[in-house]
């Protein structure tokens, strides 16, 4: 199995969200970056498990600046990916990123291309579907279980109001979410060998983004909490009905 895993860089889950330049840019000051959790915990780990089970190789790909090598790529290699590709460009928008990944993957004959369910910063849930369309492949989104038997995969995915078990043949694109695998912590050996694994840097294709971000805003602050006597929860019911009007 030849497996490709798309990995992205996001602010740490506890990062303070603030903006600069008249609210037109995310303020990275003091922010620690991590590999996007669903990419790391589910997509990458499941790909490695499949490789361990069936043989083959796991390549990780990231569209991003050089910093990303230390922030996300080395970790992915330490967890168990075999090699890495970095497309040397700032990720302008989803279409830009997907176009870069698809262009790289086009002639490489991957059996499976993994993405995470969505990034925790821009919450697009877009890249997987775009890559699939660009490569004219099936796309199985929001998958929480994946088993391979030869070239046939059995996948459980989320659908409206339920789950569905489906069968699909390779090659295809899959977006991974919770349930697909358990997080792996890189061990010392993994961290040591990561440095000697191949990392290829590829220049970007000229692609025009479809969207740009003009402005950011923080949600309005909530008013001070109104406390209710635990002996009189009927007070809460009354407030929810009369004041908040939600019931």
């Amino acid at each position: 199995m030849k497996l490709l895993v798309c990995i992205s860089k996001t602010p740490d889950t506890t990062a303070k969200i603030a903006f600069t330049d008249n609210n037109s840019r995310f303020d990275t000051n003091g922010v620690t970056f991590i590999m996007n959790p669903t990419d790391e915990w589910y997509a990458l780990v499941r790909a490695i498990e499949i490789k361990e089970q069936l043989g083959g190789s796991v390549t990780v790909i990231n569209v991003g600046p050089k910093d990303n090598e230390t922030v996300v790529i080395h970790k992915a290699l330490a967890i168990g990916a075999d090699d890495a590709v970095r497309i040397d460009a700032d990720p302008a928008d989803a279409f830009f990123v997907a176009s870069q990944i698809a262009a790289y993957a086009k002639d490489q004959n991957y059996d499976l291309i993994f993405t995470g369910k969505e990034t925790i910063d821009y919450n697009g849930s877009n890249i997987g579907g775009m890559v699939a369309e660009l490569l004219d492949l099936p796309y199985v989104s929001l998958a929480n279980h994946l088993e391979m038997a030869g070239n046939t995969a059995t996948v459980t995915r989320e659908i409206e109001g339920g789950q569905e078990v489906i069968e699909v043949n390779t090659p295809f694109v899959i977006s991974a979410q919770k349930g697909m695998a358990e997080q792996r912590i890189p061990n010392m050996r993994g961290i040591m060998t990561a440095r000697s694994k191949p990392l290829k840097v590829v220049p970007p294709l000229p692609v025009t983004a479809y969207t740009t971000i003009a402005y950011y805003e923080l949600p309005p602050q909530r008013k001070e909490v109104k406390l209710i006597d635990p002996e009189h929860p009927e007070e809460l019911v009354k407030l929810l009905h009369e004041q908040a009007k939600v019931i």
Partner: peptide, 12 residues
Amino acid sequence: VFSGKAFADYSI
């Protein structure tokens, strides 16, 4: 964006 911690205005 930022998992509910902010909003962003995107131009298409």
